[in-house]
């Protein structure tokens, strides 16, 4: 019985350590959101949706942090990070698609020698 109590105490301590305030994860997601905004994600419809989701999740993560729900806050920050990363990728894909179309159009419009 004593051994069981010691084990349980160890488990509780471990859980306490792993649920430290996820400040780094939150800051990282905030940086990613800023990057997405800077790249013009708001102007690309698909990316704008992901950016909005990321912003919403950052706000949610902040609220969870205030309420000391660190584990959920960390997951929310990770969600924000993944949405912001997707927004950035969508902006780049949009730009790449436009460049490819432009290149194809220029090729078609080039005078026939």
């Amino acid at each position: 019985m004593r051994a069981t109590f010691i084990s349980l105490a160890f488990v509780f301590l471990s859980v306490g350590c792993s649920t430290a305030a996820p400040r780094q994860a939150l800051n990282s997601s905030i940086d990613s959101v800023k990057t997405a905004e800077k790249l013009g994600a708001a102007q690309v419809p698909e990316a704008a949706k992901a950016l909005e989701a990321a912003k919403h999740e950052v706000a949610w993560a902040r609220a969870l942090l205030v309420n000391r729900k660190h584990e959920r806050a960390r997951l929310m920050a990770e969600r924000a990070e993944s949405d912001a990363a997707l927004a950035i990728a969508l902006v780049r894909a949009h730009e790449a698609r436009r460049a490819a179309q432009q290149a194809a159009t220029q090729g078609a419009a080039a005078p026939n020698p």
């Binding site: 969508l90 894909a93 790449a96 460049a99 490819a100 290149a103 194809a104 220029q106 090729g107």
Partner: peptide, 16 residues
């Protein structure tokens, strides 16, 4: 999405 972007970049490069 990243794979799609890479494809597009390659398409642009090929056109060029």
């Amino acid at each position: 999405v990243m794979a799609r972007a890479a494809d597009q970049v390659e398409a642009a490069r090929n056109a060029e």
